[in-house]
Simulated scan of single mutants.
Amino acid sequence: MRALRALRALESGNPSVRLRAALALGGAADPRSVDTLIERCAVEPEFFVRDMLTWALTRHSSSATVPKLVDALRSERPQARSQALHTLSKIGDRQAWPAITRALLTDADEEVARSAWRAAVVLVPGGEETGLAGVLATQLGRGGRETQLSLSRALVALVALDEAALPILRTAMTHPTPVVRRHAIATDRLVRDPDAGFEFAVEEAKRIMVVGASGREE
C-alpha cells in the first residue's frame, strides 16, 4: 500500500512530494516500481527529482533495471535516452556496453551525447578503449563550453584507462578545422595536467595555435 501511494505521488504537481516519493521507492526497492521510475525519468522536469529517481533505480538489482533502461535508449524522447544513460553509468553494469552505440555517442541532442560519453567511459570493457576514443574524437569541437568540457573529461578518463587511446587524440591536434584542433590541444593539455582547468587549457591551446609549436605564427 505504501509503495502504491509513492508511485501515485510521482504524478504530484509538487516537486517536493515527487522527491519524497522517489526516496521512498528507492528505500523499498520493490521491482514492481522499476517501470514507473523509468517512465518518470523521461518526463520529470526537476533535476533534483530526476537525480533521486536515478538513485531509486540504483537500489534495485541490475537484472531488474538494466534491460529496461537499455530499452529506454531507443525512445524518441531525448530526456528518456539521456536519463537512461545517466542511470546506466551509475549502475555500472558492463552488460549494458553493447547498447552504447555510435548513434548515441553522436546523438544530435547534446545532453544525450554528453550522457552517452560519460556512460561509455564507465562501461567500456578492456580492449575497447581505442575504438571508443575514435568515436569520441569525431565529436571534438562540438557545441559550447559545457559540451566541450564533458567530452574533454571523457577523453581524459579514457586515456587514464588505456594510453592506447592517446594517439587518436594527438592526431586530432593537427585537424584542419581550427575548433576541432583547439579542442584536441586543450584536451591533451588536461591529459598531461588534469589540474590545469579547462579555461586555462583552452587559452593555452589558442596560444599554441597562434604561435605554433616552433614559435612562428601560423
Rank of each mutant, 00 (worst) to 15 (best):
G143L: 14
T58D: 14
R59M: 09
D109Q: 12
V124H: 07
D35N: 10
V43N: 02
A80K: 00
K68T: 11
W97P: 06
G26L: 03
T58A: 12
W55T: 04
T130A: 13
D107H: 12
W117A: 05
R74C: 02
E111Q: 14
A103W: 03
V124M: 09
D30T: 07
L73Y: 06
T138R: 03
T106K: 12
G26F: 04
R59Q: 10
A28K: 12
E44K: 08
W97Q: 05
R74V: 02
A157W: 15
Q79V: 04
K90E: 11
P98R: 01
E44R: 09
G92W: 10
G26E: 06
E128K: 11
A84V: 07
Q148V: 06
A80R: 03
D71N: 03
A120Q: 11
P45Q: 13
E163K: 11
A103S: 07
L25F: 01
A84N: 05
W97Y: 05
E76G: 13
D107V: 08
S62G: 04
W55V: 06
S61M: 05
R74S: 06
L123Q: 08
L155E: 10
A99N: 01
P45A: 15
T147A: 14
A42Y: 08
A72I: 13
A116R: 10
Q148L: 07
I91Y: 00
V70G: 05
R153W: 14
A116C: 15
D71C: 02
T54R: 11
Q83E: 09
Q83A: 00
D51W: 04
S75V: 09
S33L: 02
L85Y: 09
V66L: 07
E128H: 12
S152T: 14
L132E: 03
R118P: 04
K90P: 03
A133G: 06
A119D: 00
I91S: 01
E128L: 09
F48G: 12
P67C: 07
G127K: 00
R94N: 11
R142I: 06
L104R: 05
I100R: 06
E46I: 05
R142D: 04
K90I: 04
A28H: 13
L57N: 02
A64Y: 09
L57M: 07
